[in-house]
Design a binder for these strands. Structure first.
Length: 385
DNA sequence: AAAACGTGGCC
DNA sequence: TGGCCAAGTTT
């Protein structure tokens, strides 16, 4: 360090306005109108709406979030309303948005704010950071956008803009972002960075000629801004196989609730067995032993050679029929191929964690997309429904 | 610290 | 049309 007490002030007076001022001017003229957002320069919106939108937007596109945000706040207009919602209603309302731990943490967070903070969000980044589901990014974003705090907001957009701006290898994004974050209008600055990242400084084919920061951008100067940030190698995505079951009784179908931990945790679902890694070399493997699972008629007993375990997890001993075809669903870290088996029973209890659900109202069950796809195929292709 | 954790839109 | 990617967090 230089020992000059004015050093930091000199830096922020010199560097920060060079970036923040033109960016904010651009934002004043080009801010997107979004339902969770206040117009540039106006008072901050309800922290509940800021928080909700930020959590919904984690790894999720604006296009997907917008309608879900609207219906969410119509149903639960305030934090107090939402804190009283049931787990079931919240998980069903989140269905289709993915990353369901967000919904579980959302409710935990709302109840924590109600119980420990008098029903109002804390207004400091550190206190926000301690709430369930708020990591470094979201705590900074809420502090800046909802409370006008100066906070260094770093998400994928900021990372992209900043690495290009400085032609940086990505070693210390936070320090670089800190160096251009203004003391005033930190919330607008953060949202301006995101708008710039989504409309101008895009991952591919950035529109540098429209960029308000072009003159100060080292990445533009290199002639290949797209090289930043460096992209990481993608991991191989293994394939798993499983079975999804449709058990009909009268006009109802059996639904279960998945365990709170793990994939699709806490969500309603059709019963399913284990999702097992495909055998590396199915044809070369020794023939599987004959399997009596399922007993009597049924897919596992028909000797199709599909192997043992396909009926594992079946919710009943029944005359299971395979549907033609399979469901293919791609998750973040594996690809799932599911066979579909259907049966009908006359009288059976739902059992622990199960419930008979009217088929006509399946749309309101809040099934995650995998099971919604499966249910659609059952209803279209299967006469046992 | 690497891996788990979903989904829909876009080119 | 299949891969890439999005306003990340948790363990």
């Amino acid at each position: 360090m230089c020992g000059d007490p004015c050093h930091r002030a000199a830096v922020s007076a010199k560097v920060s306005p060079q970036i923040a001022a033109p960016l904010l001017a651009w934002y004043d003229a080009n801010a997107r109108s979004l339902p969770w957002r206040a117009p540039p320069g106006s008072p901050p919106p309800d922290p509940y709406r800021v928080w909700l939108s930020e959590v919904m937007l984690q790894q999720t596109t604006v296009a997907a979030v917008r309608p879900r945000f609207e219906s969410w706040v119509a149903r639960w207009p305030t934090l107090a309303d939402f804190a009283e919602a049931s787990d079931d209603d919240v998980m069903a309302a989140w269905a289709g948005l993915g990353y369901y731990a967000r919904a579980r943490n959302l409710l935990k967070c709302a109840r924590a704010v109600a119980a420990d903070h008098g029903g109002r969000f804390p207004d400091t980044e550190a206190a926000l950071r301690a709430l369930p589901g708020l990591g470094d990014y979201t705590a900074a974003a809420v502090a800046a956008i909802a409370f006008g705090r100066r906070a260094v907001v770093v998400d994928a957009n900021v990372k992209r803009v900043v690495t290009r701006l400085f032609a940086d290898d990505g070693g210390n994004i936070r320090a670089l972002a800190d160096s251009i974050t203004p003391d005033d209008r930190a919330g607008d600055f953060a949202q301006a960075m995101m708008d710039l990242g989504s409309s101008i400084c895009t991952p591919r084919a950035p529109k540098c000629l429209l960029c308000p920061l072009r003159e100060d951008c080292a990445g533009f100067a290199t002639g290949d801004p797209e090289a930043y940030p460096a992209k990481k190698a993608k991991a191989e995505k293994p394939t798993r196989h499983g079975t999804i079951f449709w058990l009909a009784r009268g006009e109802d179908v059996l639904l279960v609730r998945r365990p709170d931990k793990g994939l699709l945790g806490g969500m309603r679902a059709l019963p399913s067995g284990p999702w097992t890694l495909a055998h590396p070399h199915p044809s070369a493997a020794s023939p599987l032993p004959p399997s009596p699972i399922g007993r009597g008629k049924g897919p596992a007993a028909e000797g199709g050679g599909k192997g043992e375990g396909e009926m594992e997890g079946a919710p009943a001993q029944a005359d299971w029929q395979w549907l033609d075809g399979e469901i293919v669903h791609v998750f973040t870290h594996f690809r799932l191929v599911c066979r579909l088996a259907a049966a009908r029973v006359e009288a059976q209890e739902a059992g622990a964690g199960g419930e008979w659900w009217p088929v006509a109202r399946l749309g309101q069950a809040g099934l995650p997309t995998l099971f919604a796809k499966a249910a659609e195929k059952f209803r279209r292709d299967c006469d046992a429904v």
